[in-house]
Design a binder for these strands. Structure first.
Lengths: 232, 232
DNA sequence: TCCATTTCAAGAGCAGTGCTCTCGAAAGTG
DNA sequence: CACTTTCGAGAGCACTGCTCTTGAAATGGA
């Protein structure tokens, strides 16, 4: 059967591709993206460097694959944590998602740097990444939506100048939510990664010591800032 | 005179050192830190690469020098902008400083990435950077201090668990301010760079369009979050 | 089954990198 | 004037991403 035989080839191909990504991820976790070397990956896999180009046309393409995986890994971590408290009150669900993001980032600092640190020079995010990148945001939107339906969110007034932009953002992300809420949420989204980034990248060194307590306080403030009300 | 002659040598040395940094900064601004090449810098300066090691013992040392300069440049930009509104009300001073940080970051994206993006692999910030790095934070603290003396800041209660850490932070940064205020300020400080980073690094692509309006709204919220009161 | 085509690993090679070492010519010092 | 320090130049090492060619498999149609 042609499908079986070519399937065997295809299977071998995905296996090698996966092995390359795994080894690349290992090196990434160990030394960071800057030191990820195609030749070292090939060497570790017992193949010659030029053979690797049959699977990834360039180093940047390998990195792109790792970026997408990292977004997925972070998204899965956040979704998994959220699922365990899916029926809790919104503020709790919000903080749990934020804590999951932080935990993942601390456990995978180099992968975090890959997706939320300085962008790789020549690289511009291909469309394949934007879906994976949006998962955490979607999660937060879902929480706000539930809270909104249960009247657990109080939108604060927007400054007049921001009205058109806020309506545009809301139309794109969540037409069923008040523009003021979704706009505040986008700001909180960025601010969340400011908090996480400062901790992962060492900006809190010699400033914040009890970082867990500090983070948990900060994301609770963030939740209140988007209008989520403590209830029950 | 020995001081004059050796002064001539020393002068030549600082001149060459400055020329190297200038050319390195040019390449950094053009292509980013990853593509900064010692050999290319030397080539552009008409010297051979090995000669450059008389001035910077390694590529990382050159980068460190650029990092310190970037912190200083950002700090100067923020301080300069603040000086022009030094007598305005606190919320305005706060937003002006934030806007200055954003403007500087947008004008110098690669330098911004150098100091607030992913840290360089082997590199750990030497003590010489921490002073330069603190300038924006000091500015924000100063604004809060003035507002506090004018009763223009309302501290929100801290969760009990954060109390010891908040007092530690306050003792380090501003013993004359309420721990709740200074702690909220540290969070806002990190969140500010989350907002700026998302814009500079392209995370707002296809999400936020009118970024100036959005940013100005977000940092005003931030000001209120730390307890700054709008006053006439 | 045989043959043409496609797929792939291997090797050599190119241009570039950071960095080290040695050497000789300056410049400053007693 | 001799002596020492400083500095630029050059060669060279080990490494990188990437390309090209070559030869051996695996695949698929006749």
């Amino acid at each position: 059967m042609s499908s079986a035989t070519s399937g065997a080839r295809a299977r071998a191909r995905v296996e090698v591709t996966a092995a390359i990504k795994d080894e690349a991820r290992r090196q990434l976790a160990a030394d960071g993206a800057a030191k990820l070397s195609l030749r070292a990956v090939a060497r570790e896999l017992g193949m010659v460097s030029s053979a690797l180009y049959r699977y990834f046309p360039s180093r940047d393409d390998l990195l792109t694959a790792l970026i997408i995986d990292a977004y997925d890994s972070l998204g899965a971590a956040a979704e998994g944590a959220h699922a365990e408290v899916a029926s809790a009150e919104p503020v709790r669900r919000w903080t749990v998602v934020c804590e999951a993001v932080r935990s993942w980032a601390l456990a995978h600092p180099h992968e975090y740097a890959l997706i939320y640190g300085s962008p790789v020079p020549g690289y511009s995010a291909p469309d394949s990444t934007i879906e994976a990148a949006a998962r955490v945001g979607q999660l937060l939107i879902g929480i706000l939506r539930d809270a909104h339906q249960g009247r657990g969110v109080a939108a604060r007034p927007l400054p007049g100048g921001l009205r058109p932009e806020a309506e545009r953002i809301a139309a794109d992300l969540a037409p069923d939510l008040p523009p003021a809420v979704i706009t505040a949420m986008v700001a909180a989204w960025a601010q969340l990664f400011g908090l996480v980034g400062f901790e992962v990248f060492g900006q809190f060194n010699r400033v914040v010591e009890d970082r867990s307590a500090f983070f948990s306080y900060a994301v609770t403030q963030l939740a209140h800032g988007v209008g989520l009300l403590e209830q029950k």
